[in-house]
Amino acid sequence: MLAVVQFPGSNDDRDMRFALKGVLGAETELVWHKRSELSSGTTAVVCPGGFSYGDYLRCGAMAKFSPIMAAVRRFAEAGGPVLGVCNGFQVLCEAELLPGVLVRNHHLHFVCDFVHVRVERAAPPFTSRARAGDVLRLPIKHGEGAYFAEAEVLARLERNGQVLVRYCEADGTPTAAANPNGSLAGVAGVTNEAGNVFGLMPHPEHAVEAAIGGVDGLAILGSLVDAVRGARGRR
């Protein structure tokens, strides 16, 4: 059972459930943020996009105090896969389950568009359906998506292969022009050191149907579903 956390102000929560359940056929439940436990049998947790608590303070800053986040932290520390998309990525950074932080786009505008990202490493549980070097076409929609980390942290992430996806041109070349928000080193998504927590700004859940946004998002969500298929789950 995949758990999609519902914060007040989440707005891609139902879309994520549709992608995981409606398209990929995986058992999925929406989990209200005021719960203090995940359901038994939870095999993965997804923090979806949106504007949790309105993002009036700092994106994700309030959501980390939601009761469910203590359970998500325990789940992650026990090695369970946790995916954060957009606002979910911001929440995981604020909760320090992921390194770095997302700041205001360098052009100061919200941006909604399709971008390309290069898969830097193909491995379970998030990118096993891709090959290293694959280019995915995914939508972004955020105002605060510029990835930032201290230089030594960024160097460590690169060394450890924690940068899982990077903004690039359609041919896979990472360029400044292909970086839509001023992220350092064109980072679009990173994992924690153990590799079981992954956050990214692009929205794989909005690229799961050929005629609506394409199917490149399945490379990520399909990998997660593959990884937990047959897993016994815990909480």
């Binding site: 891609d12 879309d15 992608a19 909604c112 568009d113 939508p139 929609k141 946004g213």
Partner: peptide, 13 residues
């Protein structure tokens, strides 16, 4: 329109 979310709810053909 790039400053508007055009995609949420996943139904924009």
């Amino acid at each position: 329109y790039r400053q508007y979310d055009q995609l949420v709810q996943g139904d924009t053909v």
